[in-house]
């Protein structure tokens, strides 16, 4: 926050700094999602295993999807003022 204090109007700068961080967080999440759902990471789940009776591949897809949504929810609701 020290750089904020140096800015012309700290009241205006401070939220934009956190907004900036929020945007970066979302961009990182987007990149992660894109990677997780495509070649080659997608193939990692293609195993002869079952989770609670559900084959690993579809289970993993839904699980990763759910985790991404949870992270998105956390990131979105956290910054709500």
């Amino acid at each position: 926050m020290r750089t904020c204090a140096a800015a012309r109007n700290p009241l205006e700068r401070a939220p934009s700094m956190t907004a900036h961080l929020h945007h970066q967080r979302l961009a990182a999440l987007f990149a992660a999602a894109l990677l997780l759902f495509n070649f080659p990471l997608l193939a990692l789940w293609d195993r002869e295993l079952t989770v609670f009776g559900v084959p690993l591949f579809p289970a993993a897809l839904f699980f990763v999807w759910g985790v991404l949504i949870a992270l998105l929810a956390w990131s979105m609701e956290r910054t709500q003022r």
């Binding site: 945007h23 979302l26 961009a27 987007f30 999602a33 894109l34 999807w65 998105l72």
Partner: peptide, 13 residues
């Protein structure tokens, strides 16, 4: 449905 999820991640922007 994964595509819209991706879009929603960047929806705030």
């Amino acid at each position: 449905y994964l595509g819209p999820t991706l879009a929603m991640i960047v929806a705030w922007m």
